[in-house]
Computed example of a mutant assay.
Amino acid sequence: MIKYHPSKQLMQKHVAGELPVGLSVAIAAHIELCGACKLELDALESKQAEAAFTNSGSYSEEAAESSTEEDLAFEAMMNDITQLDMSSEMVPRVPQMFDYQDKSVQLPRAIAALKLGSFINAGKVSRARFELDEGPLRSSLLHIKPGGEIPEHTHTGFELTLLLDGSFEDESGSYVPGDFIMLDGRHNHTPKTEEGCLCFTLVDSALHFNKGLSKLLNPIGNLIY
């Protein structure tokens, strides 16, 4: 059962279109996997639509008194568009699959629509970045093989992990597909998996490794996040 979800504030900003692409993609993918958040999204969208139509109604009454030639031309164009014949043919959606660990996993639509770069392997951890131009934000597909782990670390910014397949655990608990986990500099954790897992991740700064030999990675942290 999914235990970790986007906050209400994030959901509201997602509906309003106020989030970076990577974060909005993660929320959309979570919603596809989580029935409870799908219901919450529908309620938020309905509320926003009601508010928008209420505001546009009062605006239209004022605008009607001062219509310009451009307004009339736009209205005529929209009328022409709505008179066009519309196709009723339904085109089936072909699920996008991702192959890993000798199996195929169906990716959420929002993630499947992104262009993925090449994988970089480091032991039992593989990571490929999605080709999004979002400044310091890095959206990736992360695969950890069975028995793998990422050394204990914290974050100089934030880290979002959306588990897509398999399972993993850390000091805070265990996670199942659909779990939406957001961490920042207040958290230390050591993700590890017995069966292997596939995740969508989003970070805005380098990881900071805390213990042993893994500290040697910190000087190049900006290159590997």
Results as ranks from 00 to 15, higher is better:
Phe98Arg: 04
Ser172Glu: 09
Asp133Gln: 13
Asp102Met: 06
Leu162Glu: 09
Pro151Ser: 12
Gly148Arg: 12
Asp170Tyr: 04
Ile144Trp: 03
Asp102Trp: 01
Thr161Asp: 10
Ile144Tyr: 02
Arg129Met: 07
Met97Gly: 01
His155Ile: 04
Lys145Gln: 09
Ser140Lys: 10
Phe168Lys: 02
Val105His: 00
Gly117Asn: 08
Phe158Pro: 11
Pro108Val: 07
Glu169Ala: 09
Pro108Gln: 04
Leu162Ala: 10
Gly166Tyr: 00
Glu152Gly: 14
Arg138Val: 15
Lys145Asn: 13
Phe130Cys: 09
Asp179Pro: 06
Lys124Cys: 08
Arg129Asp: 14
Ala110Asn: 04
Ser167Val: 12
His153Lys: 02
Phe119Glu: 03
Ser167Thr: 15
Gln96Asn: 01
Asn121Cys: 05
Glu149Lys: 15
Leu164Cys: 08
Gln106Arg: 03
Arg109Ser: 09
Arg138Tyr: 06
Ile120Cys: 10
Asp179Tyr: 07
Gly148Ser: 10
Gly147Val: 13
Ala112Thr: 05
Arg138Ile: 12
Leu137Ala: 04
Phe119Ile: 11
Ala122Leu: 14
His155Thr: 09
Leu142Pro: 04
Leu141Asp: 05
Arg127Ile: 15
Gly166Leu: 04
Val105Pro: 00
Ser104Gln: 15
Lys145Gly: 03
Ser140Gln: 13
Phe168Trp: 15
Ser140Met: 12
Leu107Asp: 00
Gly147Ser: 13
Gly166Met: 05
Gly157Glu: 12
Glu169His: 07
Thr154Leu: 03
Gly148His: 09
Ile120Lys: 11
Gly123Phe: 11
Gly123Trp: 10
Asp165Leu: 02
Gly173Ile: 04
Gly123Glu: 14
Gly173Asn: 01
Leu132Gly: 07
His155Ser: 02
Ile111Cys: 03
Gln106Ala: 08
Gly117Tyr: 07
Leu137Val: 10
Leu114Gln: 01
Asp165Met: 07
Tyr100Cys: 14
Glu159Gly: 14
Ala112Val: 12
Gly148Val: 04
Leu141Asn: 01
Met182Ala: 06
Leu162Lys: 09
Gln106Tyr: 02
Glu149His: 15
Leu137Trp: 04
Met97Pro: 00
Met182His: 07
Thr154Asn: 11
Glu159His: 11
Leu183Pro: 04
Ala110Phe: 13
Leu114Lys: 00
Glu171Leu: 06
Arg129Gln: 15
Val94Cys: 07
Pro146Tyr: 11
Gly135Pro: 02
Pro108Glu: 02
Gly117Ile: 01
Val94Ser: 14
Phe180Gly: 08
Tyr100Gly: 03
Met182Cys: 13
Phe130His: 11
